[in-house]
Design a protein around this nucleic acid. Structure first.
Lengths: 236, 236
DNA sequence: GTAGAAAGTTAGGTCATGCTAACTTTTTTC
DNA sequence: GAAAAAAGTTAGCATGACCTAACTTTCTAC
């Protein structure tokens, strides 16, 4: 409706603008709407600040915006978000694999580098470590041409008692949590079975490898699982 | 004299501020004064813009400044400049050695990354490629604790006819020039002998390896040489 | 269906970084 | 040593990105 300027595609985005697009992408899972407050919270800024930036991004044709209602990425905004996401995740993977960066700190470093690294650098990094498909936390890396695996996984907090699955992804932004998860060896690729769940948001008891352990639901919510069919899984 | 705020050292500098410090360092070779116009020219901004930033940097105790006269880095400013310079050059070396980046483009990429990369990342890069002492253009890399090789070399434009020397360093910021120099194999480490010099800023004829070639003085000025003692150098 | 809560916006301010135009100071030149 | 040139500065403006405070709109609950 509004006369949004045609996005010139080559137009270079500022660091903060890229951060907004990433946040909006994350909230709406690529397509859905994002609320002002939620964007503000994710970026740790005041809601009032979001209104201004959102207008600028809308002017650039990166998102559609109607006052007092949420924003949605346009196709061009989605592509821009995915470019940044690709950078971020390739950088994370590279730092981890090529430079031995600890997995709890790659996110922080990548947050700054993603705005400075050229596409060529990111592509060279990806090539050097063998075109990875996921980052160190299991998040899928968008391809150069902007496609991503958008599979939605169940969180460990929602897995039924007795169910088993493989950890596919964990939240990436809390170093302390990441260190704890690594300690429990809850890392992408690990098989997990839910042994029991205490009621009233009580602890969830798991078996991971040959260990048995309990974690709170808040932590479990940060672990995404690809469920395994129950029947036939005789090997524990 | 002026009540400069004590530099808190950990205070984080903005990208532009780091660029100013680098420029001032380069102009004054670490210690000398830098003129407003020269800073402006190097950073490709208007002289009027320099006055403002210079005041801010002086307030932060990074440089000493007296109106209408040049600026000089303070000890703290010099350290900050060297930190940035170390980042820049380590990144250049890393891009070149670890990622196969062409030497004419590492400068441009490093210009942006140097403001985003953490010290930890830079140190890991340096360690990974074996703690290099120079960048791909031959510029010395400052150490972690802020010392640099400050040897001043003669430019190829100033070398006498008949004199020989080894290329130690070339300018890093003009990709086209770098490609041309590489073509002529005028690269750090190469031995060069000045065969003749045409008068009135005419071409300089060199022997490089088993080739003989002529270059203009403008290009020669961008090549720094460590002279070799003439006598005894029987092997050409 | 209206009152209060929640969400979102505008108004007005700040800071860093740049700009141009007009002015001042310093340097150079004869 | 005075006039012209060069160098440097201030004044005033713009932009991006943030802030708080005050206001408006929308949603929720009864």
């Amino acid at each position: 409706m509004s006369a949004a300027r045609e996005a010139t595609e080559t137009e270079t985005l500022t660091g903060p603008a890229e951060d907004y697009l990433k946040a909006i992408y994350a909230i709406g899972k690529g397509y859905g709407p994002a609320a002002t407050n939620e964007i503000a919270q994710r970026l740790a800024i005041a809601p009032a600040s979001v209104s201004g930036m959102v207008r600028r991004l809308a002017d650039q044709g990166l998102l559609s915006y109607e006052r007092y209602h949420g924003v949605k990425l346009t196709e061009s905004g989605r592509r821009a978000a995915l470019r940044t996401l690709r950078r971020h995740r390739v950088i994370e993977a590279y730092l981890s694999q090529a430079l031995g960066y600890p997995w709890d700190r790659v996110h922080h470093e990548a947050e700054r580098l993603e705005h400075a690294a050229s596409d060529e650098l990111v592509d060279r990094m990806a090539a050097t470590i063998g075109e990875p498909e996921v980052d160190p936390h299991g998040a899928p890396i968008p391809t150069r041409d902007g496609s991503v695996d958008e599979t939605e996984y169940t969180s460990l907090a929602d897995l039924d008692t007795g169910a088993a699955g493989v950890v596919v992804r964990v939240s990436d932004d809390d170093p302390e949590m990441l260190r704890y998860l690594a300690e429990l060896s809850i890392v992408p690729g690990k098989k997990i079975t839910v042994k029991s769940r205490a009621p009233y948001d009580g602890p969830i008891t798991l078996s991971v490898g040959r260990q048995e352990l309990s974690i709170g639901p808040a932590l479990a919510a940060n672990v995404l699982i690809a469920p395994l069919a129950d029947r036939g899984s005789r090997r524990g």
